[in-house]
Simulated assay, not measured.
Amino acid sequence: MAAVCAGDLAAGPALGLLPLVSLGPAFAGLVGGWRRTVLVGVVAAVLCAGLGLYSDLIGGRRGLTALLTVAGVTAAGVVAAVMRQRREAELASVRSIAEVAQRVLLRPVPRGAGPLRIAVSYTSAVAEARIGGDLYEVVTSPGGVRMIVGDVQGKGLEAVETAAVVLGAFREAAHDEPDLTAVGVRLERALNRHLAGERFVTAVLAEVGDGPYATLLNFGHPAPLVVRPTGPVTYAAPPDRALPLGLTGHSSDAPLPHTVPFAPGDQLLFYTDGVSEARDAAGRFYPLKSRAGLLKDPDPEAALRAVREDLVEHAEGPLHDDAAMLLVRYREGHGD
């Protein structure tokens, strides 16, 4: 408004800048509350009237048009401000509900379980969202520490609902069933009651007991990354590729559990394809294996944070898919 006044005084009334004073209440309605918009509108009207008197336009058609423009834009700005504040209040309520849903669906994992140190990272691809289709859980059972990391096909509320079914079934089965194969059967049975059509869930189940190894059961999920204090970084790939949960009924070849050495000092990084398939501007996938050095931080949460920051930097902006990571460390010196 000051720029418009200065331009109008410098150029004279012939240029016709006076109606542009209404830009003040227009922008005020976009960024401020309705009271601020009214105040800016009053100031704009005073400036418009003052300039109209100075230029001897207040009694003519141009002066009246300018005043009516300021009044109309101010009224529209007030309505816009009220509607925007109402939507902001609704969004704040939705965010609060989402945070509660996150605590119920994706509960904080224990930082320590038996010989393990555990950290988790979850980044939703949906703007302002806290939860999505990726899932994880850690349960201490009589058979050892059991974990799941999975990815539901699709996004949105249907994916969240499916993730809730999988997590609920896993939390019960992990306590009740004698081995991972039986846990997988329970998950498949729960999904068959819930899913319709060709929807599916990729998942990897893991169990760490007393022995120096981890047992894995992979349902079409990306293989976990194995990082040892010495030696090469490898993927704990299953001996045979299996179908995801929800589709195993279409094949007679159910996934078989396999073991990987897991001793003090070793790390297992479970992740979803939002991590491994994140692309940079040139279309290159995120080189997770070559970034294993980021996991050397003594604090597992700090190590995952470094990987997440590097992942976002690689993608050069927000991720296009949900990205979950679960880092499991076998404490050095345990059992010595």
Rank of each mutant, 00 (worst) to 15 (best):
G7F: 15
G12P: 05
L15H: 13
L15K: 14
P19A: 10
L20W: 13
L30I: 01
G33S: 10
R35F: 12
V38P: 07
A44K: 06
V46P: 00
A49S: 10
G52F: 04
S55M: 10
D56T: 11
L57D: 04
I58G: 15
G60Q: 06
A75F: 14
A75P: 02
A76N: 12
R84L: 11
E88D: 06
E88S: 11
V94Q: 10
V94E: 12
V100H: 02
A101E: 08
L105Y: 06
P110F: 04
P110K: 05
R111E: 14
A125V: 01
V139E: 03
T140D: 14
S141R: 13
M147A: 11
V149A: 10
G150V: 07
D151M: 13
V152Q: 04
K155D: 02
E161P: 04
V165Y: 02
L167H: 03
F170S: 04
E172N: 06
L180G: 09
L187G: 03
E188F: 08
N192D: 14
R193G: 15
G209T: 01
D210A: 15
P212H: 04
H221P: 13
P224D: 07
V226E: 09
T234V: 13
R241E: 14
P244C: 09
L247V: 00
V260A: 07
F262Q: 05
D266F: 10
A281G: 11
A292I: 01
L294M: 07
A303I: 00
R305Y: 04
E313I: 00
A323G: 07
R329T: 00
E332I: 09
